[in-house]
Simulated assay, not measured.
Amino acid sequence: MKWIDKYKSHLSYIYPEKVSVEKKNNYSNYLKHAINTAGFSPDKIYIVTSKNDNTYEDHILPLIEALKHKGESIVKLYHNNEFYVTKHNNAVKDSLNEIFAMLSYDLSPNNLKAILGN
């Protein structure tokens, strides 16, 4: 049994077998509304994704646009566009080195950042 299969019944609203265009639009609008009405915006938001993710057009792009439109957080975006990265969990699992590099850079002292460049 795959790990996701244990949780699929609980995740049916975000991991459905067949999803209608109406449900996709509702979910995209829900994210936009949640972001725009949030009482807190972090300084930075890291998004690790793939243009091959099967929800990229319907879910990831609206999320990125809503965050950029609100304009209160710096959005740091990394794409792992390997052909096998088609789901959210693969984007993270197959990009751990890149995630660690981004976080290490952002958490490093300013004098080290000057040496490494932007």
Rank of each mutant, 00 (worst) to 15 (best):
H10K: 14
I14F: 04
Y27R: 13
L103D: 02
S9C: 02
S108R: 06
Y13S: 15
L107I: 08
S95E: 04
D106M: 05
N25H: 14
M102H: 03
A91D: 03
Y56D: 00
L112R: 12
K87S: 10
N54M: 13
L67N: 07
V21G: 12
Y27L: 08
S95D: 00
K2Q: 04
L67T: 00
V48G: 08
Y56E: 00
K2V: 09
E17I: 09
K93Y: 10
Y46V: 14
V19H: 00
E72D: 13
H59W: 11
S95Q: 03
W3G: 09
K51E: 12
K76G: 00
D43V: 10
S28V: 01
I60R: 04
K18E: 05
K113M: 05
V21A: 14
K44R: 10
V85T: 07
K68D: 10
Y84A: 02
P109I: 10
N29D: 13
P16S: 12
F40K: 14
S28H: 01
I115L: 14
S12G: 06
I47V: 03
I74K: 15
M1F: 12
T55P: 00
M102F: 11
N111V: 14
V21F: 14
K68Y: 01
K6L: 15
H10N: 15
S95N: 01
S28E: 11
T49L: 03
Y27F: 02
N52D: 02
F100N: 09
K24T: 10
D106F: 03
S20F: 12
L31D: 01
N26V: 13
N29F: 07
E65R: 14
N90P: 01
N52E: 11
H69Y: 04
N36W: 02
Y30L: 13
T55W: 07
E22C: 07
S12N: 08
F40R: 08
